[in-house]
Design a protein around this nucleic acid. Sequence first.
DNA 1: TATATATTTGAAAAACCTTTGATCATGTAA
DNA 2: TTACATGATCAAAGGTTTTTCAAATATATA
Lengths: 229, 229
Amino acid sequence: MSKDRVLIVDDEEHILELIKFNLEQNGYQVMTKETGEECLAFLDQESVDILVLDLMLPGIDGIEVCKQIRSKPNLKTLPIIMLTAKGEETDRILGLEFGADDYMSKPFSVRELIARMKAVLRRSGSQQQQLTGPLQVGDLILDVESHELRLNGEVIKLTIKEHELLKTLLENRGKVLSRNFLLDKIWGYAYYGDTRTVDVHIRQLRKKIKEDENRPYIETIRGAGYKIK
Amino acid sequence: MSKDRVLIVDDEEHILELIKFNLEQNGYQVMTKETGEECLAFLDQESVDILVLDLMLPGIDGIEVCKQIRSKPNLKTLPIIMLTAKGEETDRILGLEFGADDYMSKPFSVRELIARMKAVLRRSGSQQQQLTGPLQVGDLILDVESHELRLNGEVIKLTIKEHELLKTLLENRGKVLSRNFLLDKIWGYAYYGDTRTVDVHIRQLRKKIKEDENRPYIETIRGAGYKIK
DNA sequence: TATATATTTGAAAAACCTTTGATCATGTAA
DNA sequence: TTACATGATCAAAGGTTTTTCAAATATATA
């Protein structure tokens, strides 16, 4: 496999250096830009596999860059990881709503960044085939875009966590997903809570989709995690 | 699950005692060292699940220890939490640059340390990417991703131990695996139980896969262990 | 700010899995 | 063939994980 190409955009030069050095050590081909304008101009000319983008930039900020990228057909699916100096949850949601695939708050460990890049790249690679319409299982239809779950036409309201949980399970249909995996994917790396939290949300979900012996959607794999067939 | 093994390295003895006591209360198996040299020597001999490492150490300091650990292939992914006396942000980034997964500045609450340890361990455990396709032998098909064993289409439910056992045997097809090897691999280093435990699980497995004279999957090699052809 | 809603935590019950010890069976060496 | 060592079998005890419920926090909404 050839090296993945990464573009890093940040206005702090030493951060750029730090990330660049570490990513290169890990076999990535790294390019850097310091402003949103430069970033957009660069992406018009060259293609990259993944973009690491600081939220706070002089001139056009990260969110705006994100939006513009998502509005270009050829860049719609470019994986983007957003860097944010503030740790607020609001930032996260905001970033993700504007089309980022993941986010990290500074300061962060470069190892973590690499782990997340791998995860995002893996997802974007495997999702190519899965973008065929809404996710469905049995009499359940999950419309990811509208955040709506239908059970035989009846609309079921899901909370964000429930939605993400169901979506993740459906996107990985058949695979057993560990609680740790789900926590990382849905709750984020910086989550320090208990793994039992997952159980409770699974329970809510099961209740909402009216799971019973006849319609056993979410399977518990003891000692391993959960899966949907 | 067996206890997670933690190595704590700090030159202040009372800090070591404090952390050790609290972690043991919380079900960890704790080892301690007072210098970087001792730490590295120990890691050459024994394996641990996570390392809690003070930045300031007599002789080789924490950063150097970190670097050396990261340069060893078998320790590249060992989760490391760095302890630092100074609270400066620069120190943090510095520490992380050298490969720590998280950091804490002293003084800290042991509760928080445990929370962070959990998070770091979770992250390292969530990178589940066994790209192994289904393993097959005769009319048995083991799908590791979905934790499913099929016998001519019929799904057989396996417990974790049975699944691991079958998986390990299949991954080492043809090789005889000793009970001790299996115990290390599946039950973990910290397991002190009897080797006969393996027999019992093999027995369950045999029962579940309906082994008989015509389909002798798991072979007993007297005096050596088990194997699958 | 109050109210509603969502999320997390804690603790007990239930379900299930693992280990142990006793006993039996079988293979191996003398 | 016998004695010994190793492996198989079983069921009860013991342990762990998961579920469930309820209460406490946190967050969003009006």
